[in-house]
């Protein structure tokens, strides 16, 4: 467990019941400052409700939640938080610059700072050519871009992005990835709620799988600390006795002609396994660690029925 001051988000048994329906059962989570953290789960798993509880939009039935060391919903702390809602909507009679200025004023930013920040952000999200249009004339992707700009307006320490790439074309998705990377480099913490597992895999340092309003598993995505690795080994002169000997590392070994497929509990065991094979006289031609894709793991955890 990290010291509280190092945590951007900390929850303990966070629970939300709407009427008789449990939306979030018991969310216990820690996200360190500077992390890009992915929130994964099927529809109705309680991801958006959890994010809303952290932002103070929804009041928990029980449990604790802190962001940046303060209770969730604390008004002052919100000046260090940015939020892109899943379906960003705003007064459609605004131009994008007016929208950003209004949000900046709600953040308490000075006019001078806004004069500098607003054009820079419009440029960042590629909306400078559309600065005089009304939001009612914006496409879904353009609304998402301006929503993203307002979430970055105050250079937040903690950013919640709820499905940020929804409605975006490949250029837009690339833009979101670049922005998240830039925010991480700046030292900000990002909580990313996305259905696009590929995007999460590329972007996040760590993910939590949520099912029925509980964290089922958290997983590091940087590869080195991979907990479970499936390895394909192409080798000859591998006797049945040698194959049996592999059971000291894993019970999951499959041997087909020259191909061995084994699932190791940790990536760090791989050099040991290769040494063993060589010492036992096997000629090793190829060793390919195959990371279990996030999608496979997602399906494994939530079930093929999508958790419904």
């Amino acid at each position: 467990m990290s010291p509280a001051s190092d945590l951007a988000i900390r929850t303990r048994g966070l629970r939300k019941v709407f009427g008789g329906k449990v939306a979030v059962r018991s969310l216990t989570l820690e996200v360190a400052r500077g992390e890009v953290f992915g929130f994964l789960g099927p529809n109705g798993a309680g991801k958006s409700t959890s994010v809303k509880m952290l932002l103070g939009l929804v009041f928990p039935t029980s449990g604790e939640a802190e962001i940046l060391g303060h209770p969730a919903g604390d008004v002052k702390t919100r000046s260090k938080v940015g939020f892109l809602p899943e379906h960003f909507r705003f007064y459609d009679w605004f131009t994008p610059a007016e929208l950003l200025k209004l949000h900046g004023r709600l953040y308490g930013m000075s006019h001078a700072l806004l004069r500098e920040r607003v054009p820079a952000l419009l440029d960042l999200v590629g909306l400078t050519p559309h600065r005089d249009k009304r939001l009612r004339d914006f496409s879904k992707g353009m609304l998402q871009r301006i929503g993203l700009a307002q979430a970055l307006l105050n250079e937040p320490d903690l950013i919640f992005l709820d499905e940020p790439t929804s409605g975006l074309d490949p250029f837009g998705r690339r833009l979101v990835r670049d922005i998240i990377k830039a925010q991480r480099d700046r030292g900000a913490t990002v909580l990313l709620n996305s259905h696009l597992l590929g995007e999460v895999e590329i972007t996040c340092d760590r993910v939590a799988f949520i099912k029925d309003g509980e964290v089922v598993e958290t997983r590091q995505l940087d590869g080195e600390n991979e907990e479970q690795t499936t390895v394909l080994i192409r080798a000859v002169n591998v006797t049945a006795e040698v194959v049996n000997g592999l059971s000291q590392w894993t019970p999951s070994v499959r041997s087909e002609s020259e191909r061995l497929t084994l699932t190791l509990p940790s990536n760090s065991l791989l050099p040991e396994v290769v040494r063993y094979l060589v010492v036992k006289g096997a000629d090793v031609y190829e060793v390919t660690p195959r990371r279990l894709s996030l999608e496979e793991r997602f399906l494994e955890i939530v079930g093929r029925d999508g958790g419904m």
Binding site: K52, L55, G56, L57, V75, K76, T77, R78, S79, V81, F83, P85, E86, H87, F88, R89, F90, Y91, H103, L106, Y107, G108, G147, Q150
Partner: peptide, 14 residues
């Protein structure tokens, strides 16, 4: 109902 309020209610304004 439309969710417009969410962007305002998460700003540092009670």
């Amino acid at each position: 109902a439309s969710g417009t309020i969410q962007a305002v209610a998460t700003k540092p304004v009670p």
